[in-house]
């Protein structure tokens, strides 16, 4: 009995395989087209992952990956017993959630507003103006904020003094670091973020709006009942993708804002890897830190995807 079962399973398998082969051959041109993409991922994303083994070694450049001694989880133990560990973990997560909570809705609102503009010239000018900051490097944005927020004749502090208020040490305080970080992101990225939403809104069937208008729906009603539901799946996908970027909080951005006075709120995994790894040459340890960071990111993406499927939306996989 079991023999025949296995046998029939094999027959079915073989049949499936031949169908698959036939399809592969038939559409070979199409399949060839994904080869470059696959190669890209294999060469630049998968092969380098092999380097992760140095997280479990005492890697020394002159002995190389093959000959460096294995030390198991030593570097992970060191990371978890590091006094800074919980600070870094909570800073990373907190900055990410602030980012999600305050930055993420802004492009949606901005896109809704732009979508309602009826004068095309005006709309295009506004679009261009809000895109521009995206092309500025963080160095420039942070330098501008330094000049504006400085205690020594920074314009904001001068205004505060004129209004009879106390000067605020924006750049070197633990309280102001997070608001400044989020505001800078909004200023730089909000306009750029509207592109995808505007594209999604342009694809909505105008008939829906027409029907709603005939039923006497106001502008706000139309936005609420037509525009937003139509772009919902786009929003969900972007949220999940954003969560995948939990680890890309912007090393450059934070590194530029980081100083001795705000380190306890500003140090994140990226900056820590940089100081420990590149500046001090602790390659194995910083690889372990980066590895741990990726695991945190993976868990977040998977839970977000699971949640979105639970809520009846499509996930990203």
């Amino acid at each position: 009995m079991p023999d025949t079962a296995v046998g029939s399973a094999m027959v079915i398998n073989a049949k499936l395989r031949s169908v698959l082969m036939r399809k592969l051959i038939k559409n070979r041109a199409l399949y060839m087209m994904i080869v470059p993409g696959l190669l890209f991922f294999v060469i630049f994303k998968y092969i380098p992952m092999g380097g992760l083994v140095i997280a479990f070694q005492d890697y020394q450049p002159y002995t190389g990956i093959l000959n460096s001694p294995w030390v198991g989880l030593k570097h992970f133990e060191r990371l978890f017993s590091e006094p800074m560990f919980f600070t870094i973990l909570s800073n990373t997560l907190l900055l990410f959630f602030l980012n999600l909570l305050f930055y993420f809705p802004v492009p949606i609102i901005l896109a809704l507003m732009l979508n309602e503009v009826r004068i095309n010239a005006f709309k295009r000018i506004v679009q261009t103006v809000v895109y521009i900051p995206h092309f500025m490097s963080w160095v420039i944005i942070v330098s501008i904020s330094f000049v504006v927020l400085s205690m020594d004749r920074g314009i904001i502090n001068e205004l505060l003094v004129m209004m009879g208020l106390e000067k605020i040490n924006f750049l070197m305080s633990t309280e102001w670091f997070r608001p400044i970080y989020v505001l800078q992101i909004i200023w730089r990225e909000a306009g750029w973020g509207t592109i995808i939403y505007l594209a999604a809104m342009a694809a909505i069937d105008p008939g829906l709006y027409e029907a709603a208008r005939i039923d006497g729906a106001s502008r706000m009603r139309q936005i609420w009942h037509i525009t937003l539901p139509s772009i919902r799946s786009v929003i969900v996908v972007l949220v999940i993708l954003k969560i995948g970027d939990v680890l890309e909080l912007g090393f450059e951005h934070i590194y530029l804002l980081l100083n001795s006075m705000n380190r306890e709120v500003a140090e994140i995994f990226d900056t820590y890897v940089y100081t420990a790894g590149l500046r001090q040459g602790q390659f194995s340890y910083s690889t372990a830190v980066g590895f741990f960071k990726s695991v945190v990111g993976l868990i977040l993406v998977m839970s977000a995807n699971w949640l979105s499927k639970k809520a009846g939306e499509e996930g990203i996989y």
Partner: peptide, 8 residues
């Protein structure tokens, strides 16, 4: 008597 922002 010195610049307030000297650490940055």
């Amino acid at each position: 008597y010195m610049n307030k922002d000297f650490p940055v």
